[in-house]
Structure formats: structure tokens, C-alpha cells
Design a protein around this nucleic acid. Sequence first.
DNA 1: AAGCCGGGGGT
DNA 2: ACCCCAGGCTT
Length: 344
Amino acid sequence: MIISSFPKFRRALLAWSAAHGRDLPWRRTRDPYAILVSEIMLQQTQVATVLSYYREWLRRFPDVRTLAAASASDVLHAWQGLGYYARARNLHAAAKIIVEQHRGTFPTSAEEIRKLPGVGRYTANAVATFAFDHSLPIVEANTARLLARLLNLQLRIDSTAGQQHLWSLATGLLPRHNAGTHNSALMDLGALICTPGQPNCPACPVREFCTAVHPAKLPLKKPRTELKQLTEHHSYIRRNGSILLEQSTDRWRGMWIFPRLANPPAAAPLHQSHFPFTHHRVALRIFKTKAPRGMAANQKWTKVEEVEQIAMPSPHRRALRELLAASAAGSCRNTSSYVNFNTR
DNA sequence: AAGCCGGGGGT
DNA sequence: ACCCCAGGCTT
């Protein structure tokens, strides 16, 4: 890309986005709180997944004061199923900081926004550019791919040097005014035309500026680390109409899971399933065991009617729904065993 | 610089 | 089975 061609690039990009850009709910507001919510949710999470969570979140926590006043368990419950739960804890903490240290007024500079927990360079600039129209660059998955192809970048985009090239170009392309629209257009182009698999180059409004020789082979990335197998054992303990659950202290911190079982019994598990977890493939096995004499401090009996009200990670949530359904069906048929091998 | 953190969608 | 995703934090 030649610097003198940047104005032409911007005009072509803008004309395209006016006709083909996406209409997304967080673009229909300038409320920095709502935009921050969307940006945190969208970290490593696809737009289609976020949509329903975003609407429900703003219904439950319509403003920063409501979120700051909410309980940690309510916040985690609203995030349930989205993954990367530290994001929810950070967003909650950020709301408290804004209320307690900024008197409820959202900070307007990217520097101040970036001091909030869970907010890095991308998210700070995104909120500043979309909420306040500040002329700041953004580089995330869509724009990184697009810019790497424009540059025919032969560096890995997840390397320090590669990142420097991307942020540098993103900065150079910025207009003085209406940067929010410009940045949205870059993302849309990456998401709709300059796609990961086979980019739709014939439909690209800026193809004349692109130097990629083999665009489908870009961007370069570090090869993924290999998957490791894990097996995790848990207990299914029912008493009257309740189930014993345990609040996790490490992975899924603060969420409720089946109690961990150090020594699995020889009997067949009631439930088995598999789920991916970062670079692991976990076999989840749940055994029927007897109620313990005492209860650990992080455990509690939860009524079956109330399990939907507490935050559980997706694999345990799915297992619980399956076990309850099997249990209900089993009691109707008056059987006592409901072994379920859901091995996928 | 590398590892860690979830879960679902698309192919 | 893979790869991908509006990243950030910790080591």
C-alpha cells in the first residue's frame, strides 16, 4: 500500500460499507457501557454467538450502575455458556470501578478506558472509536487478516513484529473524522469479503490496493499445539429433590459443577461425554455415589427446580439436563438404572 | 515469547 | 476432525 493512495482506499471502503455493511445492535447506540459490553463479549467469540447474550445482558443490566450493584453469581449466570468467564468477572469489576472511582461517568479517553480490567489495546480503542468517534486504530481478527493480505505480510500475525506492521497500517489508514464508521467498515470487509477460507476477491472494493499473491494462504499463524487427552470424574449425588453441587475454585471459578471425584468407582458411569477445552479433549465421567457425611465449604444442595438459576459451565449443564431427563423417564418406567454412554 | 482461558459455528 | 472467532492476562 502506498501512502498517497490511502484517501482513495478509504473512499472505496466507505462506499462499499454503506451498501453492504452489517447492521448490528451495538452499532445502533453510542452508549459506551453497551459498547463495552459488546466488545468484551466479542473477544474470541463470533458475532452470531454474542447476539442473544448481548440483548439479554442489557435487559438484566441496562446500565453501569445496575451491573455494579449486581451479585457475582447473577453476573456469571448471565455469562453462562459464553466461555472465558474471566471476561464476566472483569466486566463486573470494571463497572464497580466506573461507579466508585469515576462517579458513574464512563471515561472518555482510550488511555483511561484501557486501565479497566479485561480491556487491552484493541478493546480500549474500539470503545473510544465507536462510542466517542475518536480517531484510533483497531486490529482484531477481521482487520488483521485484511491488513495482512493488503501488505502480503510474510510475518506471523501473532508475532510481535507482525502485530507492529498491522497496527502501523491501521494507524496510517485512519481518517481524521468518522473513524468509527471507517473502523466498522474494515471489520465488515474482513468478515464478509476477506474471509479466512476463500476470500471473495472479485467482490472486494479495495482489490486494486491489495498486494497479496496467494490471499488464501494468508495470514500466517503459529501452528497450534497438539491436543491432550484428559479424563475427569465427578459425582452425581441426589437426596430428596436436591443435587449436591460444588463451586469451582480453579477452572470455571465461581461456577457450579458436579463434585470432583478423586477415586472413581469401578462401576460404570451414569454419564459420559467429551468436550474440548483449550488444547485438551476432556472425557467427562459422572458416577452415582453416596451422599458424604459432611459437606465441603464450597458445596451445597440445590433443589432440582432451582438448578437453572445457578451458573454452570456448558459440559456440566448438558450432563445435568441429560441426567435429570433420564431420571424423570426412568421413574415413570420404574427402572432403577439409566446408564447413558454419550460418547460422540 | 509462550501458555492459558470456553464454547459454538462452519467446513 | 479440524479451523476459526471484534483478546487479555500471567508467567
